[in-house]
Design a protein around this nucleic acid. Sequence first.
DNA 1: TTGTATGCGTTATCAA
DNA 2: TTGATAACGCATACAA
Lengths: 361, 361
Amino acid sequence: MSGKVKMVTMRDVAQASGFSPATVSIVLNNAPLARYIAPATKKRIEDAAKKLGYRPNAMARFLRSRRSQTVGVMIFDITDPFCTPVLRGIENALYQSSYVPIFADAHNQRTRFERYLEMLLEHHVEALIVVANWLFVDIQLLADLSKRNITAATIGWEVPGDSVSSVMVDNEAGGRLALEHLHHLGHRKIAVIRGPKMLIDSGPRWKGIQKFANSVGLEMDPSLVVQLPDELEANSGFDGGYRFTEELLERKKKFTAVLAFDDLTAFGAIRALTKAGIKVPEQCSVVGFDDVPLSALSAPSLTTVRQPLEAMGNLAVNLVVEGIKAGLEKRDWSISRHKMTPELVIRDSTKAVEGGKDLTK
Amino acid sequence: MSGKVKMVTMRDVAQASGFSPATVSIVLNNAPLARYIAPATKKRIEDAAKKLGYRPNAMARFLRSRRSQTVGVMIFDITDPFCTPVLRGIENALYQSSYVPIFADAHNQRTRFERYLEMLLEHHVEALIVVANWLFVDIQLLADLSKRNITAATIGWEVPGDSVSSVMVDNEAGGRLALEHLHHLGHRKIAVIRGPKMLIDSGPRWKGIQKFANSVGLEMDPSLVVQLPDELEANSGFDGGYRFTEELLERKKKFTAVLAFDDLTAFGAIRALTKAGIKVPEQCSVVGFDDVPLSALSAPSLTTVRQPLEAMGNLAVNLVVEGIKAGLEKRDWSISRHKMTPELVIRDSTKAVEGGKDLTK
DNA sequence: TTGTATGCGTTATCAA
DNA sequence: TTGATAACGCATACAA
């Protein structure tokens, strides 16, 4: 029942199998030289390893091979529902490649980001994936990574220069999708809650909205357009959506739909509308952006523009894994920037405008 | 702009400062012997280290000191909203102690759990924290950990024996809290959606419900009590809540409140009620359990029994950190089991029964 | 008060 | 086809 388990080293396996540590290493790692090892030898070594319960020591291995089998995953705020599916995608892809993720959560704080970066470097992660949406990170910080031969990729964010790959949604297409949907439903008086200036997503989404509006001759009433302030607190989207919707209602300007910057903002808007006695979607439609997990569960379920979050996590991993391989083989390798296609998910928070007709039918 | 950065080792610092690697090690780690080092020496060494950008190599350090500064965090399913706040709590506490979390997500799969356990052992995590709610894990697996001098703690789950600490809510108290609330609001016909048998939480919560019912002479109509099946898929709680509520409605038995096993189940119930044209909370109250992050954002916001999830994550870390320390100092140390106090959070999904009076006022 | 020497477990190079 | 040996970067026992 008790009794400590002593660590089983390669030497132990060598001894037990009657071969040298070198041979054991070659066999167990299936190294190139393994081609020349007699099958019988391989078998004896493998049997001995299994019998002893041998487990390679990742640290010792690193010291020789410079491979930690570790990837840093830096998340700006795990509390943001946006992050969970992305993390799942990252974790899953890393698992397939037998990498282990070292998890770092910046809590939206620059100092914390920097401290974690330091720790990740001490642990010699072979690559870094940054899930972020804000701009506070010193560009130089990430650029330095490439000097250390650490490939990096960002999700939901881009850094200038040619040292970091990135994966994002096509925000402009997404903005367009959202407005197009409302327009098809017959909405013409549409309130828009734009994202904070600080976020890289805000601009393109708004641009997509404007472009579509122009293309169909829809006039966006400036007094129905508001913009979220630059805030980093969790749920600030929800609060902002709530507050600005209240404000819009107070202006007594009529609108039949709200196009919210993201899902949380949309939830805030719905809360404000409901509180004011306005039914969603009967009296007012609401569209979000992201398709965060709770969007399917909320009442009413949220119509939104879906980001393929899990796939984005996957892709980022594939990018850095390619980068690692290239580095190992001393191949040339260049970063890439990806824009994923968003998708409209129609649920219960939008409806054809009253008195109008649903043009989608 | 370009040019690879060569790794700076302790030897480099030694050379630059004019002292030996040993002295450098002592100073930089602030080891016991540092007491005897001249302040001037310390300063010169520290300056040199900073100037060169010296960063200790965690792997090499492990090989000597057996300390990886790493803790394994095994989560049964990051997709479950229950996990996010717990993870936040764990991460935060580890950060305070300068440990780095290695993240593993079992996806509710036994084989994946085992594979990850293997990987964590290869990386020589100093401790393991398991966030789980199911029983499929081989007890032996975790018991073996203590033989390897790896302290472990579970959250939301307990393993028999005396080798693993645990942190849970007091489920019985929580069940009581939920029913008590509904009872105070005047509800007497209360439907209960019990948790799956497989989950360790289900029994105690139901027990707490029964005990309170007995204590106030409330009769729980058996035909209003249903039990979720043993399923592990994500959102199975939501689906179950939806389906069983529909089923209850079909039975035409009257009830004025639903006491759901957890928040997701509650959301499912709300969806079903809403779909049937029954307004929450006006015509039917709904209580959840957990206080998952979305509970505050949903419409209506959910009245629920709060688990202090973040604090639970924190506590688990403190337990294993203590275990690590004890191991280092060869002190005796024994595991502990903790039951955290749940808290009722009253939001908008519950209301005094129609025609009755709110006894809380 | 500081320096020298050794070994942690592994892999890569060379030799046999 | 396999074995001996060195080295990765660090921390410690011991020497000075």
